[in-house]
Amino acid sequence: MERTESLWLGRFWPDNWRYHTRMKVVGFLFTLPVLVFFLVFNIYPIVSAIVISFHEFDLFGPMTWVGLGNYENLAGNKNFWSAMRVTLSFTLFFGPPAWLIAFIFASLIREKLIGRFFFRSVFFTPTILSAVAMATAWSLLLRQNGPLNAMLGLSVSWLTKQDSALWGIVIMSVWQGVGWFMVVFLAGLQSIPQTFYEAAAIDGAGRWRLMRHITLPMLRPVFAFVVIHTIIAGMKVFTPMFIMTGGGPNNATRSMAMLIYHEGLRDLRMGRASAVSMVGFVLILILTVVQLRLFRVHEGIEE
């Protein structure tokens, strides 16, 4: 396709540029705005986070080089370890129960059934509702005189006690999170060819064996996807903590993301906050590599 007629910006091209050269430039121009965006708002910040993490910086004064000082400080900093513990606990207490419940939901509405569409909507709706609004409302639901205690016959002051506050947030998060997991599981279940089940049923396999020998193994890549997403979600969790407990009581619900916010934007210790960010960044990188490995294996099987 050798042509010289008007291209986009036709008149402005140097006369001696050939069609293919022009097309390459045009193609690049299409991607340019997005490229600039990512350079300015993603790449530059992450590089800048690395740089700031080696400095002491309070936003107003000059940056002072402290080498690995911020990282050394983290190693012995109880706030840092507490935030890591909160993040890990949140992930562990939130993930497995949410997966299990979501899996049960997905299995129940997998087959044709009256009201299937309705149930799917009901289970998914909390996921779509505003995180901020639901966190606000749940801080009332979880009050000592609130309806959750009334229904369960308890009288726990969920969010104001150090040993139950994280549980309160976990309950809310499971309620909001199961819908998404369910939808992921449903998609996974629907991708299992029906013939597998038919063949096994002819061989006389019962429900439980179908589950054990077909469903669960076939869903392995879906489980891997879900696990990694949960871990990353744990590292990102911020809004429920900020709204429901502010990270308290006594830092019992201050997650990693919240620690970054507090250190950097409340206490203006940008260097230390960036060092925490870098720890999170490295964790995410590791997880991503693991995820790529897992998915490559999975694709290899499918093809």
């Binding site: 490229l35 992450i46 800048s48 990353i232 993301a257 970054i260 916010y261 940008m270 960010s277 995410i284």
Partner: peptide, 21 residues
């Protein structure tokens, strides 16, 4: 690939430098 990689970079990780910028 670089742009795809950016989808792994949550705001929580870059909020400090982004605020500075």
């Amino acid at each position: 690939v670089m742009i795809l990689g950016m989808s792994l970079l949550p705001l929580q990780i870059i909020m400090i430098p982004l605020f500075v910028i």
